[in-house]
Design a protein around this nucleic acid. Structure first.
Length: 480
RNA sequence: CGGGGCGUAGCGCAGCCUGGUAGCGCACCUGCCUUGGGCGCAGGGGGUCGCAAGUUCAAAUCUUGCCGCCCCGACCA
């Protein structure tokens, strides 16, 4: 019998997304805690693979991991003016502990800049202590009004990098180095093309001088901010008195950065590649790359098939689905929904002919392969699938990116867009980095996603809102 | 924070209007049978009906209060 069906993308994109995540057994709402989710093994395994990719790159660029307290004294959040304003609406606060009201409440960290500021002040005395390059893998909590699995949950997992530098140039280099790492993992591991860019002043992180981000386009055509890297200037250095003695003997505040990617990336992964049959995972992030489904009828067939199945599975590193009492058909659906890149089918006919059937998750193509070549063919297929998924996503990004040269044009395009229809677009237009311009975009429920770091279009032009000169087109879109 | 919906077996739901032995499908267990895209048959186990108070001889059902979750809009990785 059919399991709960997956809502087709074309019918209702948001419902499709939720169905894919749940049917793919990645996560489910933790119905006992508002806005939180349970990340299940098939989802957490993807997170572990992603973590490894990022962590290796952070280590390779000189960062070390630390762990900071979950609770932050409430007064800490208030030390940086913009920071407190940005975060106070979404804080969860602990006011009672040990059965007694606390003298000073603790907030559950929404991010750790403030606590880092405190410890940086203790640890940094001299320019010789710099740069200080740290990262933390942690959970954080932001009391969101509206939540969606992975994309926005009250509690989420992430990494937050925190670094301190002697000069602004060094800090900015760090910010961009990390942005490159984020883009590298997104494109080459997640097969998710991104646009690197700077956030506008009104979209930047609360407390930063400037924020950079990678923006991805989902199959709905909506934008997803997939990672951010912030130039904090000396804002937190001043707020927490993080001073160091320069080589010339003077005192200066450190220049800090912070940067993060979260479990939101898993949502992005799902919305980049999956289809109406369920989850599609790029091979590099598939916890199980191939499953072998044995097919047999009589006992003597079973013995033969299983023997060959285990031999081949061992050779290629596949998992044999030898569960009893489930027909092959049920198994095919099971693994398909869970996004396994390749399913191998082995039955009596294949045993007799010395072949095995290889089926690709993304294209659905099925072909018999000589058993002697299966190892090579499988690796080949996984490699091809990885690059094909990227190409497909890149093509969609290109075909759904349009130029606009007037505010009316932008409005006309974006007013057609709804999240359910999944007909989103990236609109490239000349717009000034000015809060008034951001506000204008909000009128049609869109935002300036970023000012690309690399101009792939026609260079300078006149702002379609103010008429002033700006040096390149920005990305305007509706977003998650 | 506004609008809507929901809470009954592990999951999805019916029953409620009109109070009277708690039901269906899937899943699960046992046996037989089947197996190249969600097999079939037979038998079986599983529930303080979200919580609390009230009305009543009697409450899943009526009344009141509370709690929680989900979905749709304004803030956000």
């Amino acid at each position: 019998m059919a399991q709960s069906p997956i809502t087709p993308r074309g019918e209702d994109f948001a419902a499709w997304y939720q169905d894919v995540v749940i049917q793919g057994d990645m996560a489910e709402p933790a119905e006992i805690v508002k806005g939180c989710m349970v990340i299940k093994p098939n989802g957490y395994a993807v997170w572990e693979l992603l973590q490894r990719e990022f962590d290796d790159r952070f280590k390779a660029t000189g960062h070390q991991n630390i762990y900071l307290p979950l609770l932050i004294p409430q007064s800490f959040l208030q030390k940086e003016a913009e920071h407190v304003e940005g975060f106070s609406p979404e804080l969860a606060v602990v006011t009672i502990a040990g059965g007694k009201p606390l003298e000073e409440p603790y907030v559950i960290r929404p991010t750790s800049e403030t606590i880092v500021g405190h410890f940086f002040a203790k640890w940094i005395q001299s320019w010789r202590d710099l740069p200080l390059l740290l990262n933390q893998w942690a959970n954080v909590m932001r009391w969101e009004l509206r939540t969606r699995l992975f994309l926005r949950t009250t509690e989420f997992l992430w990494q937050e990098g925190h670094t301190a530098h002697a000069t602004h140039d060094d800090a900015l280099d760090e910010v961009l180095r990390i942005l490159d790492i984020y883009a590298d993992v997104a494109e080459n591991v997640m097969a998710m093309p991104v646009i690197k860019g700077r956030k506008t002043q009104s979209e930047k992180f609360a407390g930063a001088v400037s924020s950079f981000a990678i923006e991805a386009m989902m199959q709905s055509g909506l934008a997803l901010q997939a990672g951010t890297s912030h130039d904090l200037g000396q804002n937190f250095g001043r707020a927490f008195n993080v001073q160091f003695q320069t080589s010339e003997g003077t005192l200066d505040y450190v220049w800090q950065t912070s940067w993060g990617v979260s479990t939101r990336l898993i949502g992005g992964l799902v919305m980049s590649h999956s289809d109406d049959k369920g989850l599609v995972l790029p091979p590099k992030l598939a916890p199980i790359k191939a499953v072998l489904v044995p097919i047999y009828r009589k006992d003597e067939e079973k013995a033969q098939v299983l023997e060959t199945a285990h031999r081949i599975a061992k050779e290629v590193g596949a998992k044999v689905d030898d569960r009893e009492g489930q027909t092959p058909g049920a198994k095919f659906f099971h693994w398909e929904r869970r996004g396994v890149p390749v399913v191998l089918e082995l039955g009596p006919r294949d045993v007799a002919s010395g072949k095995i059937v290889l089926k690709r998750r993304d294209t659905g193509s099925k072909e018999p392969v000589p058993q002697s070549e299966i190892n090579c063919m499988l690796n080949d297929t996984l490699d091809r699938m990885q690059t094909d998924l990227y190409k497909k996503a890149k093509d969609q990004l290109k075909s759904r990116t349009v130029l606009a040269n007037s505010i009316e044009e932008v409005e006309g395009i974006l007013n057609e867009v709804t999240a359910e229809k999944g007909n989103g677009k990236f609109v490239m237009a000349h717009v000034k980095d000015d809060p008034a311009c951001d506000a204008r975009m909000k009128e049609f429920k869109a935002t300036i996603r970023c000012i690309p770091t690399q101009d792939e279009y026609d260079g300078p032009g006149k702002c379609i809102v103010t008429g002033e000169n700006v040096d390149r087109r920005v990305v305007i879109a509706k977003a998650y």
